[in-house]
Simulated assay, not measured.
Amino acid sequence: MFVDKLRKEASGNSVVVVFPESSDARIVEAACIAGKKNYCTPILLGNEAAIKKLGAKIGCSLNHVIIIDHLKSDEREEYAERLAEKRKKKGLTYKDALKLMDNANYFGGMMVECRDADGLITGAVGTTAQTVRSAIHTVGVAQGKKWVSGACFCMHKEKMLLLADCAVIEQPTSEQLCHIAIDSAETYEFFAGKKAKVALLSFSTKGSASHEMLDRIRKAVVMIRKKKPGLVVDGELQVDAALRPDVAKRKCPQSPIKGDANVLVFPNLDAGNISLKFLNILAGYEIVGPFLQSVSKPVNDLSRGCYVKDVVDMTVFMSVQVRRLRKKK
C-alpha cells in the first residue's frame, strides 16, 4: 500500500501537528499512536485534566503527546493581535480576535500561522465548513490562489485515485473547476510522485449528450489546457471512459487519458461526496482526506465518520507534506 511507503518517510518527530478536538477519543488515541510511532510531535489542545482522564479511560499513554490548554495559554494575546492585524480589513477587532482564541480551531490555526506548529488536523467533531472558515481566517489562502477545495486520496490494493472536490464548493463554475483540477493535479503529483492524468467527470463522454451542465465542464477543460498546456486532462468523461481502457477505446479513442485517469474531478459537491462514501463503504477503498487545497499552510480536514486509523493516516500524510515542503524551500 502507498501509505506504508509514506509511513517510512514520516518517521521522526521533527514535524509538530496540532489536534484541536481533544474531547474526542479517536483524536486522543490517534495522537498517542502518531507520537509513539514517531510520525510527529502531536499537540492536543484542551483541558489537561480532561485529556488525561480521557486517555486513561481509553487506555492510551500520553507520554509522547504535548498538551496545551488554549484557554490558559500565554500565547492567546499575541495570537489575537496577529489575527486582528491579519483580518483588520474585514473589521475584526482585537477584542473579537481574543474571543476567537477560545475556539481551539482558531488557536491551533494561529499556532500554524505563527510557526509554533507545522500543521493542523481537525474535523472529526466539527463540520468541514467550520474547518475551512477557521483555516481561511488564520493561515489564509495561498498567494496566487482564489478558492479552497477538498481532495481525498482513495486507495485499494495498488490502485490510488485522487477525488475532488469532495468537501467545499457546492456548484463550481467553469473557472472554479479549472482551479480544482489544477490544484488536484498538483496534490496528486506532490504525494504520489507520478504524472497526474485528470478526468473531468459527467454523465456524458465527449459530446454524447447536450446540457448546460456539460458546457460548464467543456469550458473548464479549455481553460485548464490554456493555463497548464503540459497537463494531461480531458472532459467531459463518464467514469467508465475515465477508468477503463477498453471502454475508452470505444467511447473516446482520441482522449489523452486512455482510460487511465488518476485524478477525478466531479461536476459538483453532491457527486464528489457521494462517490467518495460509496467507494469507502461499498468497495472497501481506504480514504485519506479531505486535504484542503490552496491554503497557505498545512491544514487538513477529517470526516466526522472517521476511525482512529484514518486520523493516523492523515497524520502520516501531513508529516510527509511538511517534510517535502521544507525541502522545496
Rank of each mutant, 00 (worst) to 15 (best):
L264T: 03
S255G: 05
H179L: 05
R7Y: 10
G144T: 00
V15M: 02
E21S: 01
A185I: 08
Y94I: 00
A248H: 13
D116V: 00
A56H: 02
A199S: 15
V265P: 14
C166T: 15
Y79S: 10
S23G: 07
W147I: 12
M101Y: 11
A248Y: 14
A80W: 09
Q171L: 09
F291K: 07
R225W: 14
T315K: 04
M213K: 11
P290K: 08
R76P: 07
T122I: 04
A135Q: 01
T138Y: 01
R225C: 14
P298C: 03
G144H: 04
G119Q: 06
P245G: 13
K227L: 13
R218L: 12
G284P: 12
W147F: 09
V18A: 13
G35V: 13
G109W: 11
K89Y: 06
A199I: 08
S204D: 13
L45P: 06
K57D: 10
A56Y: 00
K88H: 14
I136E: 05
L325K: 13
D4Q: 08
C306W: 08
K227H: 10
F317A: 05
S208A: 12
V16D: 05
K86S: 00
C40G: 01
K90I: 07
S208K: 14
A196L: 13
V263L: 11
F2G: 10
R324I: 12
Q171W: 06
N268I: 11
W147K: 05
M110K: 10
I68V: 12
G123P: 04
S319E: 03
E175Q: 06
G35K: 00
D240K: 11
T173D: 08
K195Y: 11
V265H: 15
A97S: 10
K327P: 08
I121A: 05
V222A: 15
Y285R: 14
E81V: 08
K88G: 09
G140S: 04
I180G: 07
M155E: 00
L100R: 09
K309C: 11
T138G: 01
G144L: 01
S184T: 12
T131K: 02
S296Q: 09
F2W: 15
S61I: 04
F191G: 00
I224Y: 11
E77T: 14
V312Y: 06
V3P: 07
D4G: 03
G59S: 03
D24M: 02
D24W: 03
I217M: 09
R218P: 06
A261N: 11
L292V: 01
A49H: 12
E77D: 09
D270P: 15
V125S: 02
F19N: 04
F203W: 12
K258D: 14
C60K: 10
